[in-house]
Design a protein around this nucleic acid. Sequence first.
DNA 1: CCGACAGCCCAACATT
DNA 2: AATGTTGGGCTG
Length: 597
Amino acid sequence: MEQLPSDVDVEYYDSEEKLIHKIFGALWDYPFVLTFNGDDFDLRYLYHRALNHFGMKRSQIPIELGRRVCLLKYGVHIDLYKFFFNRAIQIYAFSQKYRNITLNAVGKAVVGLEKIEFEKPLSELTYTELALYNFRDSEITLALTTFDDDLVMKLILAITRIARMPMEDVSRQGVSRWIRNFLHHEHRRKNMLIPNAEDILALKGTTATKAIIKGKKYKGAIVVEPVPGVHFNVAVMDFASLYPSIIKIHNLGYQSILCPHDECKENKVPETTHWICTKKRALESLLIGALRDLRVRWYKPKAKDETLSNELQSWYNVIQSALKVILNASYGVFGAATFSLYCPPVAEATAAIGRHVITQTINKARELEIDVIYGDTDSIFLRGASQDQIETLGEWSAKELGMELDVDKSYRYSVFSSRKKNYLGIFPDGSVDVKGMTGKKRHIPVFIKKAFDQMEERLGKVESPTEFEEAKKEIRKIIRDRYLQLKQRRWGDRPDELAFHVVLGKVPEAYTKTTPQHVRAALVLRDMGYDLKAGDLISFVKIVKEPRVKPVQLASNSEIDVEKYVGYLHSTFVQVLDALGLDFDEIIGLTKLERFM
DNA sequence: CCGACAGCCCAACATT
DNA sequence: AATGTTGGGCTG
């Protein structure tokens, strides 16, 4: 068994009451207390035990009990569960490194530490085992804030200062609260009235465009129809912080949109009936613009400034990341009904101007005789553009649009089918950028992913168009091999690698309109006594018999529906084969005639 | 009291 | 059998 580190002292107590007193002593003493789920469990539990079982007075308990939070009377309690739960933090600070918000999953993904697993239930552990278990938990929890030179604490501190909120609130609340507090504070500082949400809505109304997706409030970004095929020498240009830049340059805010001045009504937002004030600067435009400029012009360059010490560079980097998180959300909040300065026309105008910007840029590129092969929201993919053409386009954008358009990345070549948000880009060093492809999605069986990874690796080795023929041959082989493996049912002793992994979006009973397959599998598990919650990952395989799915734990090799998996192999690879001019059915040896049989 | 936004792809389900 | 809807996973 593992040993406790030699510098760990284990203290024994002969009563729970003494133990609680000791813990409370620490809670009265430490300036910061970190937990993972302390709001809902640890601190709440301690509070109730102290109050109800040991008759302690509230004044003796260092914990302040809230409805959903537990704060400390002396120090700052940060519940890291809430912080890592934050979607904006997950995406922009940790780029989706972790999916499940459990101490084990986050610890493993972020600091490479896992919880200790025992064969027996916690109640049967020896004291030493329990100490080991607890020590590891606290080690992970602490490491989640100390890693990377205290990155998480610095991030919380930076947001605390931008949003002017206590650290307790910053670590628990979402990005819309941060932005709200930031904007509210500036209203007060300028002695401005903070409007009621209903008043903004009544005065500025709702949206004027029709969303492409049913159920959405307004029309969003443009996605350019890709030019299918393999394209060598591709430069990807994008606008730096497109939406925040638009908010800044086009004076967007609840005050300026649909302002009362007649003379502003000419200042229309393209493709809408909205107009924007030409007389007075909106506060949001000013503030979001200021944050954007601070990030782009000060914190980002400083973070890369080699003449500064590493510590200082890292601090600048933390701030620029904090600003990035806030800026990325700064447009979306105006379209969120829960936001206190909710103003749909502002969100709508931002997106509309974005469409105008990207459309004009594409037109200009074509005017400069550059091939635009794809684009999404704020980016354009240019094939075979010269340095000169790229510079000209960038200068044009700065001059005519007032927007910074730069080369974000270059691909040796890229692979597009006719599908949007779905492509491969091969970097000059041979590494591969895969976007939106089925073969990379996390719910897809490992068995299929492996073949996709092989193909990816092979594509990375292709340097020029002439080398493609050889690569195509090998890719055909990769696919055929995998197909034959399936047909001959060679996937191992257990069907583990054939499992799909899908997250339960809600508790199984809450699916009333349809019963998706992962829910069918989940219901089987629940009948066996598993407790299933929203967010749980369900692993299941496809079988021949009804109900066509089975939790992977219960499935045996013989019942696997091989044809279904062939179908998945097909749809995974057809996204790439389309572009390479290859045919799946032909690869797996079906003649044209057999396909119709 | 937890919730930033829209657009796209795919498979399976439900409805006609 | 064709069509629309739902749900999950993704891009930006």
